[in-house]
């Protein structure tokens, strides 16, 4: 493993004193975190600890929930993404998201991948073909689905669907990919394929992944953040955090004493 320290160089995203409220309920308390470019950052913690909320603040998807308010700062490179003049569409193009349940649209494989480029204005068929092929290749799906581009996406297996969703995200050319428990609905073989894919993707993308599975966090991530009751308890290099946790609560959680 390369030797890195937690400094501000090579940061892709950064949060400062992030607080999120759903109506009166405070879901996040002053979370400050730095997400390093071309690395995988895992977010762990028990259900309801705020890790998914944190993930959704990174592409402003939390705004869909009625009554959400946000304080603090989130930066993508030098862009403060909650400023009024920020274009949410452009932001989400740069920060893509993969969900827990594979959310393939009820269309063909091809149409699923071409959806993003199309809404962003690409009409040229050969250009679309090119993007679809490249995205499917990058998501390790071309060999399986390249000859079945016109079949309905919903007929694919769960693991294939999840990789198709990743291909769909790649097709709009993001810089950061957020993944919300992407493997929790998958069988072990599909999960290991997905983890291989994550390892390949981090060469070109910055990845933030929420997971319930601590072994998975240990396997795929370079950095790990442990959340509890809306607080970021500990954030460190994954190796460090799992082998030598600084906080007693972190140790209790990763050794399975609660959660």
């Amino acid at each position: 493993m390369e030797s890195v320290t937690l400094t501000s160089d090579n940061m892709k995203m950064r949060t400062l004193g992030l607080e999120v409220f759903y109506q009166d309920f405070q879901a996040l308390h002053g979370v400050s975190m730095e997400i390093k470019a071309n690395h995988v950052t895992a977010l762990i913690g028990p259900s309801g600890c705020g890790k998914s909320t944190f993930l959704r603040t990174l592409n402003r998807l939390n705004e869909l929930i009625e009554g959400t308010t946000i304080q603090g700062q989130v930066y993508l490179d030098d862009l403060s993404i909650y400023e009024k003049e920020v274009d949410v569409v452009a932001l989400r193009k740069r920060v893509g998201m993969v969900f827990q349940k594979p959310s393939v649209f009820p269309m063909s494989v091809y149409e699923n991948v071409a959806y993003g480029p199309r809404i962003h204005g690409i009409k040229d068929k050969s250009k679309l073909d090119e993007i679809v092929e490249k995205s499917l290749r990058d998501a390790n799906l071309w060999e399986e689905m390249g000859s079945r581009l016109n079949s309905p996406a919903a007929r694919m297996s769960g693991g294939q669907q999840q990789r198709l969703v990743i291909a769909r995200v790649l097709a709009v050319g993001p810089e950061v990919i957020l993944m919300d428990e992407p493997a929790s609905a998958l069988d072990p073989i599909s999960t290991s394929k997905l983890e291989e894919l994550i390892a390949e993707l981090k060469k070109n993308y910055t990845i933030v992944i929420v997971t319930h599975n601590m072994q998975q966090a240990a396997r795929v991530s370079d950095y790990t953040g442990f959340f509890l009751n809306g607080h970021l308890i500990e954030f460190n290099r994954t190796k460090e955090l799992f082998v030598n946790p600084a906080n007693q609560k972190t140790e209790d959680y990763i050794t399975g004493r609660f959660g």
Binding site: L64, V88, R92, M97, F99, K101, F105, Y115, G116, I119
Partner: peptide
């Protein structure tokens, strides 16, 4: 999921 998936792509 369809709606969120689409919005997350920048639609």
């Amino acid at each position: 999921e369809y709606k969120e998936g689409s919005l997350a792509l920048g639609a």
